[in-house]
Amino acid sequence: TITQLFKDVERLVNQEEYTKALRSLDKILQSNPEDKDALHCKVVSYIRLGKYQNALDILHKNFSDFDKLKSEEAYCLYRLNKFDELLNLLRKNKSGNNSELNLRHLEAQMAYKTEDYNTSIEIYYALLQEANKNDDVYNDILTNFNAAKAALL
C-alpha cells in the first residue's frame, strides 16, 4: 500500500539508502503520479546522491511557480554552475534587501565560487550580525567569511 511504501521511504532515507528510496518512490508515483510528497522526496534523494540534473528535471516538470521548492531548485542550479538561472531565481525571490536565509547563503556561496569575494564578504558580514554566537551555524558562517576575506588578499 501507499502508506507502507511511505514508511519504507522514511526508513530508507534515515538509513541514507537513497537509491532504494527512489525505487519505493517510483512505486508510489506509478499509482499516484502527482503525489507532491513523493516528488519532493525524489528531488531530495537525487540531491543527496549528487544527481542535481535529475532533481532539476523533476522540479521543472512537476512543480509550478506557486508550489516550487525554491531551496532545492536554487541548490541544484548552484551545484550545476547555472549561475544565470540562479541569479534569476534569487532576484525573483528577493523583496527589498530581504530574502530567505537559504537563498542568502546560496547567493554568498555563488559569489565565492565566481570569485566575487566582495559580495560574498558583504553577505556573510550581514549573516554574522544576525546569527547567534551560540548557534552551530555561527562558526560555519565565520569560516566562510574568513575564506572570502583571505581570497581577496
Binding site: V9, V13, H40, C41, V44, L101, L106, V137, T143, A150
Partner: peptide, 21 residues
C-alpha cells in the same frame, strides 16, 4: 584553498509531512 562550508546544503531536506503519510 581555505576551508569553505556548503551551508546551503543544510536547507535542503525531506518534507516534514513524510512521517504522516
Amino acid at each position: 584553498k581555505p576551508l569553505f562550508f556548503d551551508i546551503a546544503f543544510n536547507y535542503v531536506d525531506f518534507p516534514s509531512t513524510l512521517s504522516q503519510r
